[in-house]
Structure formats: C-alpha cells, structure tokens
C-alpha cells in the first residue's frame, strides 16, 4: 500500500507516469469515467479549504467513485478531543482512500503509519502539499513542454509557503533549474531547504528582495499569498502582506513566454487585470489539479491500469 505524504515519495519516473496519465485523462475523459466505481474517497479536512477539497471530490466523482468526509475540524469529532489516530482507524473502515488536510505539521505522516488505507497529504500546516506540487509540475510541463532548463522565480511568502517548499524539492531532481527566490528577509525559505536541497545538491540559487529586478529573466513566476494564519503576530502580517504585488506595469518587463503560476487562493498579490494576460496560467493550473488528483487516486487505488 502506497501513501503520498512528501512530494519525494514518488520518484521521477513515477511522477512522469502520473503526468502522462493525467494528460491522457484530459484527452480521453470518457475512458476513465467508471474506473473508481464502488470506491469511496474520504476527505478529512481538519483545516478549512475550498479548492483542494473540491478538487479531490470532483476528481473522485469524475472517476465514478463516491466521496464522504468533513470540511473543518468543527464538524468532526476532533472538537470532542478525538485523536488523529482514532479518526483514521474509524474512517479507514468506511473509505478506500483518504485525503487529509491538518493544521499540524506531520499529521498525515502519522496517519499513514496507522492507516489501513492509502493516505494522501492534502496539506499539513506550513509543511508539505504534494498534490499541489503534482499540479504545478503538470502545469509547467503543459505550459512549457519540459521540466528541465528553466528559470523559476518564487515570490512572496517563501518561509511558510508549503507549496513553494514542495515544488522546490520536487524540481531539484530535474536538470538545469535556476531558482530565483524573491521575498523580504523575514519570509525567506527555511534553512533546511537551503542546506538539504540547494547546498547538498550543489544547486545555484539567488535571493533577491525586489521582483522588478529579476522578472525579465524568468520562464516561470510562481506567486504566493502571504497567509494570515501562518503568522503568530498580526502586526507582522499587516506590515508584510502587500509587499509583493504583480500588476500589468511590472509585467511589461517580463518575457512574452513567461508563465505565471499561483496555487490560489489569491488575495491581492496578483492584480485582477493580469487575469486576461495569456501569460496568466493560474486558472488552468487549478483545472490541472483535478486531473492530476484523478491520476493519483487511480495510482494509489491501483485501478484502471495505473
């Protein structure tokens, strides 16, 4: 039985197979409409989320399966003090696969050590969000036609932004990726990303404070939201939240073939006027998320030849 907790749980070959399956699902949707018939996905969201939960549920429904679950800890037995251990034991009796989001880092890993069914980490605090990583990889591959030889700028909250950490880790296995990390000093990537990913693998990276200094060099600009819930201090949040906003003015310096990605939800870090620019990929990216989750569910359930 396989789980997906960390983006590195899948090797490069497995990721390539998943992306190929996702692309095949996009091309031949009817072929996959009943591969999960009779199977149930439980979405256990101890922390509120709209996009990720609906994306998982839509993915399972499009595969012909059913979904059950809860959308916040308030509507689960967690409010009565039930442990993750007990929740997983019980839900494992009802569902064939579990997608779990939890505010505490490592909760899905702990669940996977106890679970009778596959666990998918749908986000654990500021830690990992591997299905967003798969979504990002599928989007990059579909937009650029490759996962190598790219200059990628990550902008915004790189300290707490779990999507950034997961994507950096996943991309470190591809050749000739140049990383430009655009953030205020307070929100730079954590030390373990620097030491374990960049330095250990001898990967060059550049840290800058201003987006307009580097936007012209980028193949991909990965924007992130400065998340209020990741701060202990409200004053710090207010001070930093508007630091990096992408607008049409800044985009004038960017390449014509730039791809702008964002894991969403957006607050104000990308001006809505950018949405009509063909370089804005973030809504196509959200759609890709459903397809790559369909591929992942098939792989972990071992159905449909996945």
């Amino acid at each position: 039985m396989r789980h997906l907790i960390d983006p590195m749980d899948l090797d490069v070959q497995e990721i390539q197979e998943l992306l190929e399956l996702a692309n095949d699902i996009i091309e031949h949707k009817d072929k996959y409409s009943e591969v999960c018939k009779g199977k149930k996905l439980a979405t256990l969201f101890f922390e509120p989320s709209t996009r990720t939960r609906l994306s998982f549920e839509a993915a399972m429904i499009e595969l012909g399966g059913n979904v059950l679950g809860f959308s916040s800890a308030d509507s689960s037995s967690a409010t009565k003090g039930e442990s993750v251990h007990d929740t997983i034991q019980v839900v494992g009796c009802y569902a064939d696969i579990i997608a779990m989001r939890h505010p505490k880092e490592g909760a899905p890993l702990f669940a996977s050590l106890k679970s009778p069914v596959p666990i998918i980490n749908a986000g654990d605090g500021g830690h990992y969000h591997p299905t967003q990583t798969l979504t990002d990889l599928l989007t990059i591959q579909r937009e650029k036609g490759r996962l190598e030889n790219l200059t990628i700028g990550f902008c915004g909250d790189l300290k707490f932004g779990r999507t950034v950490h997961s994507l950096i880790k996943a991309l470190s296995r591809y050749d000739n990726i140049r990383y430009i990390l655009i953030s205020p000093p307070e929100l730079q990537v954590p030390d373990y990303i620097r030491t374990e990913i960049f330095e250990r693998n001898h990967i060059a990276y550049q840290q800058v404070e201003r987006m307009d200094e580097v936007i012209q060099d980028l193949d991909i600009l990965y924007m992130t939201r400065v998340q209020r819930e990741r701060f202990f201090n409200e004053a710090d949040y207010i001070r930093l939240k508007d630091t990096y906003i992408l607008d049409t003015e800044k985009l004038k310096k960017a390449r014509a073939d730039l791809s702008i990605l964002h894991p969403l939800p957006r607050v104000n870090e990308i001006s809505t006027k950018v949405d009509d620019d063909p370089r804005a990929c973030y809504f196509r990216q959200a759609l890709n998320g459903k397809y790559v989750r369909m591929a992942l569910i098939m792989k972990l359930l071992e159905v449909g030849g996945a």
């Binding site: 442990s83 993750v84 251990h85 880092e105 490592g106 909760a107 702990f110 654990d124």
Partner: peptide
Amino acid sequence: PRCITTTEQGI
C-alpha cells in the same frame, strides 16, 4: 509548536 507531536496523545 506547529508539529503534530504537540497535540496527538501517545505519539
């Protein structure tokens, strides 16, 4: 303080 070990009993 954000780790699951801070809240999960018996972990």
